Computed example of a mutant assay.
Amino acid sequence: MRPMLLAVLRPLLLAPLLIAPLLTSQARAATETVGSLDGIPVIDRLDVADQPSGRTSRFWFRAGDTATAQRWLVPVIVVKGARPGPRLLVTAGAHGDELNGIDVIHRLVASLDPAGLAGTVIAVPGLNPPGLLQSTREFTATGSHNSPNLNREMPGSLDGSAVAHHAALLWQNLMRPNADLAVDLHTQSRGTAYVMYVFASNARTRRMAELMLPDAIKLDRGDKGTIENTLTDDGVPAITLELGHPERFDAAMISRGVAGLQNLMREQKMLAGTVIEPTATVTGNALASVRAPRGGWARLVVPLGSRVEQGQPVASISDAFGRTTDTLVAPQAGIISSSVTDPRVERGSTLVRILYSSPDPACAYGCP
């Protein structure tokens, strides 16, 4: 090739090489559809920016691997408003026996009209398919209670264990890239129950917690690897909303969860309407636990959600013949935020937890 002609053509010859990385980067950021199942697209990556406005879309997201060389499929619903606005991520089912949040998502989505929505709701009603199948808190396909906790694995690792790999795919390709704020839905674990209860770790998330109109807010630095804290630490304000009992759909709790999310969305200008301010929420930064001094049959003297005074009887333990062996009292004044629901208790089992406020400045957002 002649030198002059080469000089003219060189920029044109190099252009595809220069453009290719940009195209590759864009393709990697876009939604990656790999097939369909019963008419629902199956995706490896979601980018809500390329989803149509004014529409509700549904996907199966391919997450981790199973022991039979298949993929776990996680349901995803995207409600993209006709007008721009925040991206609200709502997740449920990180623990497979905590089910109220799944119906909260179903009902919230059913209540939304994309034509009247500003912004986008990204709803994931079932993060932990193996746990849901086994009705276990853990991430397990075998029912083992020694298996890991998906809600302690964020942001995961693509080169890690099965649960770490699953978490990393959720984090990198679904959750983190599509969130401006987030609410992770839970209940208490098997054998126990919560009031409507929110965990918050800073001033911004405390305001989000208040807008959920809960019974109680626990100011809490949280545990490493939770969805809430990992998102918040990465710049996405997030809260954990706890909704009552495990392994059931509680209509009253579900309705309150939907109403709380709608109230948060009104504050974010995603929905029209007046923001409702809380009037009866108790906020605390510390918990006092009342534990069984011996095994036996537990009875609660005051119900879940009650406000108690220090020294007030809250529970009793009876022996195999029904004789009361112990009457247990509140070590602090506060609200009973969680309680045992299974009367069979072992020595050391927690019967109730009392939420209260510690005056210690170090406990402003949870005691260290």
Rank of each mutant, 00 (worst) to 15 (best):
R2M: 13
L5I: 11
L6R: 15
A7M: 15
V8C: 09
L18D: 14
I19M: 11
A20V: 02
A20P: 05
A20Q: 04
Q26T: 13
A29C: 07
T33K: 10
D44V: 12
V48A: 07
S57V: 12
A82R: 06
A82H: 06
R83C: 10
G85V: 01
R87P: 01
L88I: 04
G93Y: 00
H95E: 06
V104Y: 03
H106D: 15
R107W: 05
L112H: 06
L117E: 04
A123S: 08
P129D: 01
G131D: 04
Q134V: 09
Q134M: 11
S135D: 11
T136F: 10
T136E: 13
E138R: 14
F139I: 03
T142E: 02
R152D: 04
E153F: 10
M154I: 07
G156Y: 05
G160I: 04
A162N: 00
A164G: 10
L169G: 01
M175C: 06
R176C: 10
N178H: 06
D180K: 02
A203R: 11
A203Y: 04
A203F: 09
K218V: 14
I227E: 15
I227L: 15
L231A: 01
V236H: 09
P237K: 03
E247W: 12
R248A: 14
R256D: 09
G257E: 07
Q262I: 06
E267A: 15
L271P: 02
A286E: 10
R291C: 12
R291A: 15
P293L: 10
W297A: 14
L300Y: 03
L300K: 01
P303L: 03
S306H: 08
D326K: 07
T327R: 05
A330Q: 05
P331C: 00
V340A: 11
V340L: 11
T341V: 05
G348V: 00
S349M: 10
V352N: 02
S357C: 13
S358Q: 01
P359N: 00
D360Q: 09
A362V: 10
A362R: 12
P368A: 14
